[in-house]
Design a protein around this nucleic acid. Structure first.
Length: 615
DNA sequence: GACTGCGGCGCG
DNA sequence: AAAGCGCGCCGCAGTC
């Protein structure tokens, strides 16, 4: 199989192993005692003493330290003590399994190694020379279990309720939580990553993300329910009875039916609506808004408005508030590593799809502020830095990369620049975007060569890797069948066309994978550094406690939202400027960690506000 | 009634 | 406005 990683133009020093620290860290492996329920075994492994230094192999002889036996109820105190004593990295099966009970007890940890997430990276990475043993440990392949649906009347778990079953229903998460399995897997992972320092950086960043995901769920996103309801009423009208449509939607539906001359037209069913539209002379093949917008007809404007309101109602209406918001906090479940590229996914309430029109509903507690920041054009900047494309890097100097491309003369308008760049990263071949590709290829040959090579690897069924070594999945068996069929003697033109089309499709996926995935690594590094910078800030002295955020965060700045290239920190007002500085410094840390010395800017759009803006 | 596939649309 | 990547969630409709 052809393979192409992201070469990673090096500008200066090699990437250090750990984005969070360069100091030696003792490792403690936590796991259940299989023979005695309620007992946790904690096994210390000291870097240096046990061959755990950067780049080293595992030394089995040193892996003989006797585990400590700790009653489950004593675990938070034990962990807190180790955290106070110095830098520790906790090795555990699954952060979502272990960390909530520590947070509930008011204990935060600085670092962890999430065996489930790290296994997923290592078992797939083409940078692991000999992954056989790791891949054989299939019990670690479990994906994150989706949390059970939250019963409406459920009470929050008691503060010291520590039984595993309190948070994790039996049988839904398959990774082992016992100490024996954890130690064996950890040693496999250390061996697998021994010669791959960038992979170790990725493992540390991924694990930091896992901590942040749990912490953000615990703290919750400050949610102004009254403002949310005001927006709903202003657009939909008063809250309707259960099962009824809001009056604005009913009125719009009547308007559509009248304009169509079809009193029984069913607006909620595309298979029924398309024929109804065609009967009225509107020649559409679907009911998607972009197609509808191309037609002039009195039924179109009210239909588009109806669809927009319907979306607001079903995705984020009154019942969404009842289901997801408690005590002024929205608490989604984040799924780190939920996307093959390394982006996060989420589960529950559509946390990563909060419509921009509802952003003003995010409001800081009294005496607190939100620090919101997003990176301008993260992906093309990551592409410029990864490819070592100095021309694109030069265009990226300053806050608007697209304007820089226009200045360079490659294209003539900002919109053209945007379409050309997005098309290059997504693999567009037709339309405006495809037409502009050759001009981009001429002006930025190194950047384009990187994505073109990734695409060609994918078209041949190969795998590609991000800068730090996350590797794309192989195409599935059906894909391989389609390709094989096309090269058989009796292959028809249809077989060949189908094969070509699916090859191109997979090529677009691998093309985008290297950019999206490396951007996700940049964002994780940003997040990890920001988290440790926030932890170093003092507790608030003047702001009233944000008690809904939990004991750990009631008086301290904390992350509350992360969306691919965007973060929101909830902070006591007195620390807002310090937090803003931390956000900027963390971005510089991320750039330095991934692209040391690279002449590429990563400018932030940052604001200190009481209420988020819709933009 | 539970499940799945699909169209549609929100986010980056 | 342009159509090419990655997601989650909803309602509908067909199936078991």
């Amino acid at each position: 199989m052809p393979r192409s990683g992201v070469g990673g133009a090096r500008y200066a020093e090699p990437v250090p192993e750990d984005p969070a620290a360069n100091t030696p860290v003792p490792w403690w492996i936590l796991g259940d005692d299989e023979r005695e329920p309620g007992i946790v075994l904690a096994t210390p492994l000291l870097r240096g003493a046990s061959g755990l230094g950067a780049g080293s192999a595992v030394n089995p002889a040193a892996d003989a330290a006797a585990p400590l036996r700790i009653a489950l109820a004593e675990l938070p105190a034990f962990v807190a003590e180790r955290e106070r004593a110095g830098q520790t990295r906790w090795v555990w099966s699954d952060t979502a399994h272990w960390y909530p009970r520590l947070l509930d007890a008011g204990v935060r940890v600085a670092r962890c190694h999430d065996l489930r997430l790290c296994h997923a990276i290592l078992a797939r990475s083409e940078r692991v020379a000999d992954p056989a043993e790791l891949r054989a440990a299939a019990e670690w392949d479990a994906v994150a279990a989706p949390p059970p649906p939250r019963p409406l009347e459920s009470e929050p778990p008691a503060l010291f309720e520590l039984g595993a079953e309190a948070r994790t229903p039996a049988g839904t998460d398959a990774v082992p939580h016992d100490a024996t399995a954890a130690r064996a897997e950890f040693l496999r992972q250390r061996a697998a990553s021994a010669a791959a320092p960038r992979l170790r950086t990725l493992l540390a960043a991924e694990s930091a993300g896992a901590l942040i995901a749990v912490e953000m769920s615990a703290a919750g996103l400050p949610w102004d329910t009254a403002e949310h309801e005001r927006i709903l009423e202003s657009q939909l009208g008063p809250r309707p009875a259960l099962g009824a449509k809001p009056e604005r939607m009913l009125a719009l539906a009547e308007e559509v039916r009248a304009a169509l001359g079809d009193p029984s037209a069913h607006l909620d069913s595309p298979p029924k609506l398309v024929p109804a539209l065609r009967r009225a002379g509107i020649d559409v093949a679907s009911t998607s808004q972009w197609e509808l917008a191309e037609h002039e007809h009195p039924a179109i404007p009210p239909l588009l408005a109806y669809k927009k309101l319907g979306r607001l109602l079903t995705a984020n209406g009154w019942s969404w508030i009842e289901e997801w918001v408690r005590d002024g906090r929205y608490r989604p479940v984040y799924v780190p590593g939920g996307v093959p590229t390394g982006r996060w996914a989420s589960s529950g309430g559509g946390a990563l799809q909060i419509p921009r029109q509802l952003r003003p509903v995010l409001r800081a507690d009294p005496g607190w502020r939100l620090v919101t920041a997003d990176v301008s054009q993260l992906e093309p900047r990551v592409l410029a830095a990864t490819a070592g494309d100095r021309a694109l890097a030069a265009a990226a100097r300053g806050t608007d990369l697209y304007a820089g491309i226009v200045r360079s003369g490659a294209v003539s308008t900002r919109d053209e620049a945007k379409f050309a760049v997005l098309g290059a990263m997504y693999g567009a071949t037709t339309g405006e975007s495809g037409r502009l590709a050759p001009r981009l290829r001429k002006s930025y040959p190194r950047a384009m060569a990187l994505v073109d090579r990734a695409a060609s690897t994918g078209e041949q069924g190969g795998q590609v890797s991000t800068l730090l070594g996350r590797t794309s999945p192989r195409p599935d068996a059906a894909w391989a069948d389609t390709q094989a069929r096309a090269s058989l003697p009796g292959a028809t033109a249809t077989d060949e066309a189908r094969a070509r089309s699916s090859a191109r499709e997979f090529g677009r996926f691998t093309r985008n994978f290297v950019v999206q995935g490396t951007a996700a690594e940049w964002a994780l590094a940003w997040l990890a550094s920001l988290r440790s910078r926030l932890a170093a800030l003092p507790a608030a002295t003047t702001a009233p406690p944000a008690s809904a955020s939990g004991p750990l965060f009631a008086s301290r700045a904390h992350l509350v939202f992360f969306l691919h290239d965007e973060v929101i920190v909830h902070t006591p007002a007195e620390h807002a400027e310090l937090v803003a500085d931390a956000v900027r410094a963390a971005a510089a840390d991320a750039a330095q960690l991934l692209f040391p010395g690279a002449p590429v800017d990563f400018p932030l759009d940052l604001a200190i506000v009481e209420r988020a803006s819709a933009k």
